[in-house]
Design a protein around this nucleic acid. Structure first.
Length: 259
DNA sequence: ATGGTGGCCCGGCCA
């Protein structure tokens, strides 16, 4: 089973790139973030024609997440069950091929002194609560998405440049660790050298200068981690091509052998 | 030297 996650920075703008990427890389399950669409605008038919069922959770111009699956898609949950999302449409979950999959778009946080930073920490806490409440021990779980947290100092191009910034602060790393402490493994690190990034700022030619961050993660439960045969970032998707401009994020993939 | 780019949708927000 091939799992993938990709923050597409507008599915409207990126649809040709997304369909091209699916054709080329054949994910079984694909988590999308920042579709920036209402549910009514989501191109369900396009993906259905390609053999994918979808669950989308979006209400307009901000955020928006989706799950695409060609191995079944059932028991869809949109948003957190416990509370109305204050800045919503950041999580959708479904069971795909026997795995409880979550597509997440963790709040950015903006800056350490911003109220949205507190919201980011609270959101990660709610994610842990959702796992506790909906995934009994032994459940096969995958959480893929844009976490807006770099787990390690080696996940940013220059730790000194990030001092005092979001994405690297101790509290948000601790909040991410709390999610992982449910029993989730960042298997990407087993297959890739430190300094392998998934996001590069559009500004300043950062992609070409190698100034990136790894903030897009696919976290999996131990049974899936044991089945992992590889994981990679598709840097080609960060480059402009005939199908249009790129997102500022590149897709991340995890491959699992059959159970 | 307080920028830069891109997407929302058309002045400003958000990343």
């Amino acid at each position: 089973m091939r799992l993938a996650t990709w923050n597409v920075n507008s599915l409207t703008a990126r649809l040709p790139r997304v369909t091209e990427w699916i054709e080329a890389h054949q994910p079984d399950v694909l988590c999308l973030q920042e579709t920036k669409q209402a549910d009514a605008k989501y191109p369900n038919d396009v993906f259905e024609t390609m053999g994918y069922e979808s669950a989308h959770h979006g209400d307009g111009r901000w955020n928006g997440v989706a799950l695409l699956s060609r191995v079944g898609l059932s028991d869809v949950v949109r948003g957190f069950d416990s509370a109305e999302e204050a800045h919503g449409c950041r999580i959708v979950a479904a069971t795909c091929g026997g795995v409880r999959v979550h597509s997440v778009y963790v709040p950015n946080g903006r800056s350490l002194d911003n109220e949205f930073y507190g919201f980011k920490l609270e959101w990660l806490s709610q994610l842990r609560t959702m796992l506790d409440e909906t995934c009994p021990p032994g459940t096969s779980v995958a959480v893929g998405g844009d976490f807006n947290v770099a787990p390690l100092d080696s996940d940013v191009w220059d730790p000194a440049a990030f001092e005092g910034m979001t994405h690297v602060s101790e509290p948000e790393r601790a909040a991410l660790q709390r999610v992982m402490d449910w029993g989730l493994d960042d298997v990407f690190t087993r297959f890739n050298a430190p300094g392998t990034f998934s996001w590069w700022d559009y500004r300043g030619g950062d992609f070409h200068l190698g100034r990136g961050v790894r903030m897009d993660l696919i976290l999996v439960s131990p049974d899936l981690a044991e089945r992992a045969t590889g994981s990679f970032v598709d840097r080609e998707a960060r480059k402009t091509n005939d199908a249009g401009k790129p997102s500022d994020h590149a897709p991340v993939v995890v491959d699992l052998r059959d159970s």
